[in-house]
Design a protein around this nucleic acid. Structure first.
Lengths: 177, 177
DNA sequence: CTATTTGCAAAGCGTTTGCCGGCCG
DNA sequence: CGGCCGGCAAACGCTTTGCAAATAG
C-alpha cells in the first residue's frame, strides 16, 4: 500500500482550507499549542511543533506513525520514532489528533475536528489504499436506537471497504483488454 | 479486559440456538466440514475439528486467537498457537469464520453467519470489554448513498464504543456511594 | 535549576514463516 | 509413497519502554 517515502496525499489544499474554516486553531497555532500544553504542565518542543505542523500543512490526513516520522524527518533530523509515538499519544489524549485503525493492523492518525463538524466515515479502497471520507448523519438515527436499548455510546467507528471510482474504472478496462 | 484463562462469554446457549437456527451447518458438522475441506484438497484434522467445535459450543464469539488457543488446549495438549493462526486464516478464507478488529490492535474471530442473516454491528463496552451485537438495516440506505458516488462497497465494519447497561448502572451506583 | 523530553536501543506484543518430522490417503 | 499438516522456534512489523543525556521555562 502506502510507502512512507512516497506518501502523496489527496486534497491537501482543500483540507487546509477546511481546517482553517473550522477555526479550531487561530492564525498562530504555536501559541495555542503552547498554552494548551502549559495547562497540563507540559512544554512546547520543536518536535511537537513540527509534528502538528506536518499534520496540518504537509501530511494531509490518515497517516501512519511511520509516514509521519518520514515527513517530520524531512524538516529536522532531530527526531526518533519513539518521539513520534509519544507525541501522537499525547495529542490524542489532548483531542488534537484522533487515532483509528484501518483494518490492516496499523494505526493511523488524523486531525481531530470532532468539535467543529460532524463525524465522518472512511471509505478505504482495497486496490490503491486511499482513504476517502464520507459525511452523513444517518448514523444519528442508529445511535438513537442503540441508546434506547440502554447502551451508552461514547464513540464509534464506521469503515467501508471496496473500490474507489478510479480503481473500479481501471480494473474494468484491464478486464476488457 | 479479557483474560484467556477466565474467558467467560455471554449467551452461549442463545448463540448455539441462533446458530442451529441459521442452518448453516446440519447436525453432523464434522462431515460437512470434512467435505468442504476435501473440495479444496485439504484434510479434516483433530485440531481443525476442535477449533470449529470450540467456536460453536464453548467459545461463544468474538474470541482472540489466544483465547481460542486456551480453549482448544483444554481439549487437547496437541496444539500450538501457530496452528490456531493457520486454521483461523483457513477458515476465514472458507467463509466459516470472520476476522475483525476490535480497535485495540488485536484481531478477533467469530462464526461467519453472513450467508444466512443480516450483517450485525458490534457494541463494545469500554468497561467490561464485552462485545454485544446489534442488527439494523439502516446501513443499507447509507450504502446506497455511497454507491451513488461511485465507490463500490465490498465490506464494512461498524463498531460502537461505550458502556453497556450493566456497567452503566454499576458505575452510577459507585458514584452515588 | 529541575522536571520534562528526547534519542537510542532493547523489549514487548500479536502474528507470520521456515523447517523438518509425522501422518493421512 | 507424496502431499498435506503440525509443532517448534525464530522472524516479523508495529508499538512501547528504560535509561541517561539534553533542554525548555
Amino acid at each position: 500500500m502506502y510507502n512512507s517515502d512516497t506518501a502523496t496525499l489527496p486534497s491537501v489544499a482543500s483540507f487546509v482550507f477546511h481546517f482553517k474554516k473550522a477555526k479550531f486553531w487561530g492564525d498562530n497555532m504555536d501559541d495555542e499549542l503552547k498554552q494548551a500544553l502549559h495547562e497540563k504542565g507540559l512544554r512546547l518542543t520543536p518536535q511537537r511543533q513540527i509534528i502538528l505542523e506536518v499534520m496540518l500543512n504537509l501530511g494531509g490526513r490518515h497517516l501512519t506513525a511511520d509516514e509521519i516520522y518520514s515527513l517530520v524527518k524531512k524538516q529536522t533530523s532531530d527526531v526518533s520514532l519513539a518521539t513520534i509515538y509519544r507525541t501522537l499519544e499525547l495529542f490524542v489524549d489532548m483531542n488534537i489528533f484522533r487515532r483509528f485503525d484501518s483494518g490492516d493492523g496499523v494505526f493511523r492518525y488524523e486531525i481531530d475536528t470532532k468539535k467543529s463538524e460532524h463525524y465522518h466515515h472512511h471509505l478505504i479502497c482495497l486496490n490503491c489504499g486511499k482513504i476517502k471520507e464520507f459525511n452523513d448523519d444517518l448514523l444519528d438515527e442508529l445511535e438513537n436506537r442503540i441508546s434506547e436499548k440502554g447502551f451508552v455510546i461514547a464513540d464509534h467507528c464506521l469503515r467501508f471497504f471496496g473500490y474507489c471510482k478510479e480503481c473500479k474504472n481501471a480494473l474494468e478496462n484491464e478486464k476488457d483488454s
